[in-house]
Design a protein around this nucleic acid. Sequence first.
DNA 1: TTGTCATATGACAACATGTCATAATAACTT
DNA 2: AAGTTATTATGACATGTTGTCATATGACAA
Lengths: 214, 214
Amino acid sequence: MPKETFYNLSEEKRQRIINSAEKEFFRVPLSKASIANIVTGAQIPRGSFYQYFDDLNDLYHYFFEKKFQGFHENFKKELENHQGDLIEAWRQVAKKVLRRIVNGENSIFFENAIFGLNIQRDQNIIDSFANFHHPENKAPEYFDEIDFSFLKIKSKKDLITLRHIMSGIIIQAATAYFSKCDSGQKVDLEEILEGIDKQIDWLKYGVYKEKEHD
Amino acid sequence: MPKETFYNLSEEKRQRIINSAEKEFFRVPLSKASIANIVTGAQIPRGSFYQYFDDLNDLYHYFFEKKFQGFHENFKKELENHQGDLIEAWRQVAKKVLRRIVNGENSIFFENAIFGLNIQRDQNIIDSFANFHHPENKAPEYFDEIDFSFLKIKSKKDLITLRHIMSGIIIQAATAYFSKCDSGQKVDLEEILEGIDKQIDWLKYGVYKEKEHD
DNA sequence: TTGTCATATGACAACATGTCATAATAACTT
DNA sequence: AAGTTATTATGACATGTTGTCATATGACAA
């Protein structure tokens, strides 16, 4: 979290810093970004940076959250649309989110973000990508909206575990998309989306055939 | 890949380098490891390091592979044990691998490795952790041993996708284990293993209840 | 002896980060 | 208005990092 000093800054100066950060984080992943570049770009002295942020990570997470505003909205609505059907709501949201990640105005930033992801440090970010971020890993506020009569899962803990699997599927899809783009291959977004569909079906019905239908 | 010069080295000198690297990679994750420490520990001049490796990543991956030797063996055998049942073979291997990761002699190294994992750069490593590493993302050589009559998946591509999900489950479990340890919580490995069991069941039979059994 | 080739070496440029003493400014108080 | 305190600004600095390069060394062949 940025320090209070940062929020006390004039709108203009704060914007200058954010713009400079944007330039840097669009240029390279976090691991290659440098404070030196950002302060130069924002035309503030180096010492000031540490007046506003603990370090580069601090700024990065602040910046990331800004970019992700709006991703967190539509799940509850989608859950209503599907009469509490968790998996189908996830399916819709997953596809919508993936489209935004790879085609939205911030796609270059998200590409850098995904390529710089760190499993442990960034589980929250990973969940964010899947639209599932909630503080302290608590079960989401939409827990009571879910129709559990369809599901084998009951507890909030199970829900969180399932959410991790979903996050993984989305991140994996986005990673695959960006990787192919990078290596110059032609990528069909619809194909990637079908892949997500298939994986969600596996999760929903299982990868085993039911014997009675064999 | 280390350069030829490295392999031309005397056994003694090579061992000195490997030992020093081991010390460093047990101490901290890759992102915090430094070449300076390794060359000092190995008592070789800095310039020599670059005679042997491109950079720190190069050494790290070489080192990682060494530590992971032996993880790749038992899947085919397990597949035979279960008459070609892919999921059940994975279940056994997943549990065995997790035990080795968190309790084996290299657990501290694996902890650093997992905490330093990078989604894109290290998909191979992630797959390695799940015992699934195969060059160029090709379907494994045990493809023909799998009994597909049970499964909804058919293609090698599907198999790889499913493998990614499995990898994710294992990494997630290991991450959870190490994270809890780090934060001083008591961790019950058996509980984590049960979690894996449950997730594999979800994958196998689906998280949806079959209506006829309701 | 002389030349060639692989290897060894450590000084060096370039760049990073976080800190700290000091200066400037703003905000109150009397 | 003058004095006091709190907040913010500043950039030089210590300390660390990486990768390179000109040069040295030593083994081996002609």
